[in-house]
Design a protein around this nucleic acid. Structure first.
Lengths: 136, 136
DNA sequence: TCCTACGATGGACAGAGTCCAAGTCAAGAA
DNA sequence: TTCTTGACTTGGACTCTGTCCATCGTAGGA
């Protein structure tokens, strides 16, 4: 339980029943749901909730920095509520399961200045790929 | 000029006018086109070429390992013909331009065994994000 | 030159996400 | 507590990206 609801309320996020349900679905670590999965889970508690509302709420949570968008394949984006602790993702090439992982060191530090081409580089997203134990 | 056409012919890839044009569009480094952009450029030389044919050809080039799929945003995949030399990507968060970059060291080596959760990890894809000189 | 299996075509379809006009409601004001 | 209003929600249409399939065409070997 990470107190997402409390944080959002504290930041003045207007609370509606729809937004509350979306935030509750996402609350907790190690969750990587697609927008449609969030919508399905939200609809279990609030059957009339619309897809557009879920997309709106997710977009705002991302803008607030409370949730991170993860695009590990060319398909649907996934939403990761573990935004407070920096981490990367390990994805099974077979079944698609995602684990949060913590590499040592800062991935930004291995990109030399002459390889930055004048960009002001602010972050590095790493996706590790392999086969998970269940798929071996 | 990277000799993509010759390599493909040498590997027994059945050559048609459509496939030739797709390969020619992709030939050369530092190109990161979407399927639609490939289709548009191919259509300049071969107006009747269909989208399905472009998708088929791109899919086969990826399967042959001659082209790499790059998904830097949630939008269209991009196709990178620079598949021979390992590299990562630096993306402008504003305009979306992509540069190939070469970090030092192997990104796989910074993922400790206890962070692999029993996966057999085979590769790491790194996307650096920042603002390019033109957008500063 | 002829055959034929492989490739191309284009239109229908599907999945993910966005947009918009109209209706609803959270939360501050009185 | 009730009122007010701007922010939020709805659902359906729409866009974009990509896939599928039946039919037609052709590269390249015999």
């Amino acid at each position: 339980m990470s107190g997402l609801l409390e944080r959002l309320r504290g930041r003045g996020w207007r609370m509606t029943s729809q937004r509350r349900v979306v935030a509750e679905v996402l609350d907790g670590d190690h969750v990587h749901l697609t927008a449609d999965e969030v919508h399905a889970r939200a609809a279990e508690r609030l059957p009339e909730i619309s897809r557009a509302t879920v997309y709106n709420a997710l977009g705002e949570l991302v803008a607030l920095g409370e949730v991170v968008e993860v695009a590990t394949d060319g398909r649907a984006k996934r939403y990761d509520p573990n935004a407070h602790r920096p981490h990367q993702h390990l994805v099974c090439s077979n079944c698609g399961i995602i684990r949060d992982v913590h590499p040592t060191g800062d991935p930004l530090s291995v990109l030399p200045a002459e390889e930055r081409f004048g960009f002001s580089v602010s972050k590095a997203e790493v996706t590790y790929r392999g086969i998970c134990p269940s798929c071996t």
